[in-house]
Design a protein around this nucleic acid. Structure first.
Lengths: 252, 252
DNA sequence: AATGGGTGTTGCACACAGTGCAACATGAAC
DNA sequence: GTTCATGTTGCACTGTGTGCAACACCCATT
């Protein structure tokens, strides 16, 4: 829509790949050096990019601060956090909270496992959307048309032999998840890691977030993990109740 | 420099305070609704803002992903992390890693305390620059002129009775820190929390990052925490060695 | 010191992208 | 149905962003 802003914003993902100098930026944007310079200066003034010792540009500190504030403003997160901690204290495993936004599912909170073997993930990181339990929960609740369109558009990378292979299988899985009200990921992302998750609903019944408990095979088997399902669901329901109660007419 | 981009970027901190609708954005930017609409659309296309159910705008998911990638590209962090974990396993307290950038000090990594009483902090959050041990370490190494200029420009909020009160006191503290090669924060930010930190240096001897161990009074006294100083310094030195070794002529 | 290549930076004239206005949609409230 | 509040579109104008070319700077190399 706005050419200048469009160009400026295109610089950010470019720099996210690694530092770059003026000419490289200009080259990849397809604009004159002087144009790139002015854009970078503006970004710099706003703290979005940072100029390191060798004059190359990197993403800047303000970006962190903004992402930080953004995540703190999510009221689901605020409400859910103590419940997640409580569940973690009971079972000891990693607990995740995720939301869906614009064709992506991302973690917005995490309580670390108390076992020494931990799974890698980080708040803000987009989730493996075709296999993660939380992703299934969130997508299962989308309106039919949107869900179908998204499923067609996705890639289905075969992380493991148990990954969701294609759109048809994914839509079937989503139907099942919607039916039963909970979801699992049994080695679909990493061979040795299993998850079990449940949805968090707003006052209108729509799924606003999803949570899951994850643990590696070496700590508990899939069957043992599944015995946690009732407490996961209880936790998710408690969060739903509190969330609906606190925001009676607000939507999200 | 670039009016359009400047305006667009000004929207982000505004939305960071909380969701806002078109008119509020236009009002606070001092531009016409239609102008604000076009800017928001461009931001939206890039995933920087998100339009929630009630049509109000919020900060978007891409912001997290970008901040995420940015932090993963910092090679100090990469190298330091296992050392921080090791130190945490030895002493059990919260371990922080921070860098200085454009008049701000911010945490780029953190290993949580294994004690139930934890201090609040989060990766990406700017540090209380006038009192934190890591901030003192990073600022103490700035060139004289820059250090002085920054000290004059800062605010000196009195978080507690032991907070640094003004620029003179701060510069004196920085001189001391530079002299001794380590720093503390004894209840300067929160009455009951103490920290002890050490600098991480690049091949040229300049301080590139700083780390610290923090613990609340109720867990260990300040004196007990200070007994950890040798292992904190040893950890910092180990990181320095590895960082200098791996990046012999690269600067940052 | 002097030369040269590789950078980043500045000033300027032109034109087109961004602007604000006013008219138009939309949808909620009553 | 009417009113109000809010988001959206089309359009003419001009001011902002553009690319160019000249300039400044740094550091190698001789």
């Amino acid at each position: 829509m706005s050419q200048t802003v469009d160009r400026a914003l295109s610089i950010l993902p470019l720099l996210a790949e690694g530092p770059a100098n003026l000419e490289q930026v200009a080259g990849r944007l397809g604009v004159h050096k002087s144009t790139a310079l002015r854009l970078l200066r503006t970004l710099h003034e706003h703290g979005m990019v940072y100029r390191q010792g060798d004059q190359r540009y990197r993403l800047g500190a303000r970006l962190f601060a903004l992402a930080q504030q953004a995540v703190e403003n999510l009221d689901v997160r605020e409400i859910a956090h103590p419940h997640l901690v409580e569940l973690n204290e009971k079972c000891g495993h990693t607990v995740h909270l995720a939301v869906y936004e614009e064709n992506e599912v991302l973690y917005i909170d995490k309580v670390e496992s108390r076992y020494p073997v931990r799974m890698y993930s980080r708040i803000g990181k987009p989730v493996a959307i075709t296999v993660a339990a939380v992703a299934k929960l969130l997508l299962a609740d989308l309106p039919e048309a949107e869900r179908r369109a998204l499923a067609e558009k996705l890639d289905y990378p075969l992380y493991t032999s148990r990954s969701t292979p294609n759109a048809t299988a994914f839509l079937a899985e989503l139907a099942k998840v919607r039916e039963q009200g909970w979801a699992t990921d049994l080695g679909g992302h990493e061979e040795s890691i299993n998850c079990v998750g449940a949805p968090i609903r707003g006052a209108d019944g729509r799924v606003v977030a999803a949570m899951s408990v994850s643990a590696p095979n070496v700590v508990v088997t899939a069957e043992e993990l599944l015995t946690l399902l009732p407490s996961v669901r209880r936790t998710a329901d408690a969060i739903s109740r509190e969330y609906s109660g606190n925001t009676p007419q607000k939507d999200q």
